[in-house]
């Protein structure tokens, strides 16, 4: 890889489409190593990826690679390799032709050599003579990565790279990304599958409903999430009996009767609470009418991270 690692910085970035806010005031810094961009479908991951790769103008804020904005800055692509989620529509090219075309577009001095090197790197030398439309999903994914890496970029952005790839190929891809990260490249990939991110990235950024919900070490976030008490509003057929019942449970920290009926419950151990609540109430003949988290935004992150 040429030169030291690059850093992608988003500063108070928002993006809206008409009335829909897709990305809401996100600030984050992505440095060398593998970073996972995690969030449920529709959380704004693709929009963020488009913003970071210069294919979308931020409505507010700035997206900069090593201090230079990426929107309408063609030269930035010398340092960025992009693997879009979109399928290749170049089915009439062979894998080698496609990667070679990418090398030529970068005007690499030794385009042929670079093509062969990168095909070997992603283990695609043997099928490279076949047309793209004969490839399996995993092979297409690897050719896309080869095309994005052929100019030896410092930053590699991958949008949902594991979608539809079979487990063995997925292992293979993860191995490749891990190696690229270890080489000091800035590798960012998005995924809505917790397990994928957990296995590959130490550092994660979580987006939920367009907001930047959490960032940092995966284990630390998860611990923070499970350790903090969670608020619930509960309505039942007999609130006082339910309160008595709940306060006896070790997983519940506090119970309060609401003025207009119902209970506010503060829960320490969500897992036990979630599994236990139906059983406890059924045993006592209490009917639950409503159970809803009261601190919505954090709750959704929490629910997303722990609910499997």
């Amino acid at each position: 890889m040429s030169g030291p690692g690059s850093t992608l910085v988003l500063d108070s970035v928002s993006r809206w489409f008409g009335n829909v806010v897709a990305v809401n005031d996100v600030s984050l810094t992505i440095g060398p190593g593998v970073t996972g961009l995690l969030g449920p479908n529709g959380a704004g991951k693709t929009t963020l990826m488009a913003l970071m790769s210069g294919f979308l103008a931020p409505s507010a804020g700035t997206v900069a690679l090593d201090g230079e904005p990426v929107w309408r800055h063609t030269e930035a692509y010398r340092r960025i390799g992009l693997v879009p989620e979109r399928e290749l529509s170049f089915g009439y090219l062979t894998g080698r032709q496609f990667v070679r075309a990418n090398a030529d577009l970068h005007r690499l001095p030794d385009a042929a050599g670079a093509t062969e090197r990168i095909l070997a790197e992603v283990d695609m030398v043997e099928p490279a003579a076949r047309r793209l439309d004969t490839y399996s999903k995993g092979m297409r994914q690897r050719v896309k990565i080869a095309a994005a890496l052929v100019h030896d970029p410092a930053v590699l952005l991958l949008d949902e790279p594991f979608n539809g790839v079979d487990p063995r190929q997925r292992m293979h891809l993860m191995e490749l990304l891990r190696r690229l990260g270890d080489e000091g490249r800035t590798v960012l990939f998005s995924s809505h599958i917790l397990e994928e991110v957990e296995r590959l990235a130490r550092h994660i950024e979580v987006v939920v409903s367009g907001r930047h919900a959490a960032s940092g070490d995966f284990g630390a976030i998860r611990r923070l999430m499970t350790d903090r008490p969670v608020q619930y509003a509960v309505a039942s057929s007999d609130d006082r009996a339910l309160a008595t019942l709940l306060i006896a449970q070790p997983s519940v920290r506090a119970v309060r009767l609401r003025p207009g009926g119902g209970l506010d419950v503060e829960v320490d151990d969500l897992g036990t609470f979630a599994v236990g609540l139906p059983q406890w109430t059924r045993a006592q003949g209490i009917t639950l009418h409503d159970l809803s988290p009261s601190d919505e935004s954090l709750e959704s992150v929490f629910a997303y991270l722990v609910a499997r």
Partner: peptide, 19 residues
């Protein structure tokens, strides 16, 4: 047309080539 339609034009545009 087809490249703009299905978005695969990004493979050409994610290059340091004058638009």
């Amino acid at each position: 047309g087809p490249e703009v339609d299905d978005g695969s034009i990004v493979y050409l545009l994610s290059k340091p080539v004058n638009r």
